[in-house]
Every structure is written in structure tokens, then in C-alpha cells.
Computed example of a mutant assay.
Amino acid sequence: MQKTKILLAEDDYDFGSILQQYLQIHNFEVVWALDGAEAFAQFTSDEHQAEHAFDICVFDVMMPKLDGFTLAEKVLQHNPEIPFIFLTAKKMKEDKIRGLKLGADDYIVKPFEADILVLRLQNILKRTQKTNKSSKNGQQFAIGKYVFDTVNYQLKFNGETQRITEKEAQLIQYFYDHKNQLIKREDVLENVWGTDDFFSGRSMDVFISRLRKYFKKDSSIAIESTRGVGLTFKIVTE
């Protein structure tokens, strides 16, 4: 059975060494880089393309040559669907917001126990694999005047194509499956993010803002918020 491949970017040698060993014990294949530039070189090298591609990334925020945020931006240009986690010793609100806007799947503040990282990775990969499995069944279907391509992660409208991320596709699919129903926020978080903690809640708010922009060309579609309760993905049919 092929191991899950992780790209770890961590400039603290002792901490990075411990994380690499701990992840390997838990049956992950880990490629560890000591700075952002080295990590990006690893990501784009021929050795790790196609069947050798990384499954998930774990980036420290503060690194020499290329910080974690810039590294994530460059990686996402090559593969918009790859999930990633930020590690940081800082608790600054601005850093968390920037990570959320980039589409981070999680944000872990140091110090933390290594088994917490393992659990977070397993939860993210479980959701990712579930989505990939359903996507392989292959379907395109109409959402109002849009066509949602679940295989290629695309929203199509009047000949225009909007490329979306895997997490955005998961959220759209969940909303569509529960269209015209009031959904509790915690239910959305548990089913799409796998947790209803503060970070995931803020992340969901960012993703919902993106979805509102994607669907704004069709006035029959709306994502309505009911304060203190939840959300409704409303599709008005004639």
C-alpha cells in the first residue's frame, strides 16, 4: 500500500527532525525541507510529479528565503487542490486571517504535541479521499444557471469557466445536497471541515464569501445567513 506523501517545511532542525520521525512512525512518507525555497524546489522537481506527487503540505510560517505564506501561494499556483497546514509560533490575528484567505485546511500554534498534527492530517486526508472517491463517479449537474463539474473542480456559466479548489467543491456539494434547507453552522463544519473549532469557523466564513462571489451572476441563487442559527443555500426555481 502506497504511503501518504507529506512535504514538510520547517527551519528548526530539532523540531523538524522530531516531526519527521514521528510522522514516519505513523506510516507517512515525509520529505523535509529546512527553508521555503528548498521546499518549493522539492515540490516542483520531476521526482515528485505524477505518481510521486505530494498528498499534503505542512509549512512553518516563519522561515528563511521564503516564508510559509509565500510558499503556499507558489505551491497553489501549481496545484490549487493540494491541502495544507500552517505551523506557527505566532498568535497574531493577521497571520490567521492571511492563512484563511489562502485556503489553509488548518493552522496549528506552537508548541503542540506531535500526535495533534497526526490527527489533523488524518482528518484532512479522510475528507479529501472521500471527495476524490465521489468525484471519480464523475458528474456535471446544473445549479441554477451554472454547471458544476465535480471531477475537474469547475463552475461554468455562459461559456465562462471558474476553477475552484477542492474545499470549495466540497462546500458547494454539501450545500447543494441540502439546498433550500436551514443548515446549522456546526453541521457544515463537521461535515466539510471535520471540526467546529474557532479556526474552522473563520475559514468557513472566508469560503462562503468566495462562493457568494462565484454565484453572484445568477440572482436565483443565494447563500443566506440566519444569525445564531445557520445558513441556507437557496435556489429559486421558476
Results as ranks from 00 to 15, higher is better:
Met63Gln: 05
Ser135His: 08
Ala39Thr: 04
Ser225Phe: 00
Gly230His: 00
Ser17His: 07
Ile172Asn: 00
Gly144Ala: 11
Phe54Arg: 06
Gln154Phe: 11
Lys96Trp: 02
His52Glu: 12
Ala37Lys: 14
Gly103Phe: 02
Asn132Lys: 09
Asn191Asp: 08
Lys90Ile: 14
Arg163Trp: 10
Gly103Trp: 07
Ala89Asp: 07
Asp11Cys: 09
Ser209Val: 05
Ile235Lys: 12
Ile82Lys: 14
Pro80Arg: 11
Ser200Ala: 15
Leu171Phe: 09
Glu10His: 04
Glu168Tyr: 12
Gln139Asn: 14
Phe157Arg: 10
Val206Phe: 15
Asn137Tyr: 13
Glu166Trp: 04
Thr232Ala: 15
Phe40Pro: 01
Phe207His: 02
Glu29Ile: 04
Phe199Ser: 08
Ala142His: 12
Phe233Asp: 05
Leu66Gly: 07
Lys74Leu: 14
Lys74Ala: 14
Gln49Arg: 15
Lys91Met: 10
Arg185Lys: 05
Thr226Ile: 06
Asp177Ala: 15
Val61Thr: 06
Glu113Asp: 14
Ile164Asn: 01
Gly138Ser: 06
Tyr176Asn: 07
Phe69Ile: 13
Glu29Gly: 00
Leu100Gly: 13
Val151Asn: 08
Cys57Arg: 02
Thr226Cys: 02
Gln24Pro: 05
Asp55Pro: 08
Asp46Pro: 05
Ile183Asn: 12
Ala50Lys: 15
Lys216Leu: 06
Ala89Arg: 07
Gly68Thr: 01
Gly103Asp: 05
Ala33Gln: 00
Val75Pro: 03
Arg127Val: 01
Asp60Phe: 02
Lys145His: 10
Ser17Ala: 14
Asp14Met: 03
Lys5Gln: 12
Phe215Arg: 07
Ile183Glu: 03
Ser134Ala: 10
Ile183Ser: 01
Leu121Trp: 03
Thr165Gly: 07
Phe198Lys: 08
Gln42Asn: 11
Asp177Arg: 13
Glu47Asp: 14
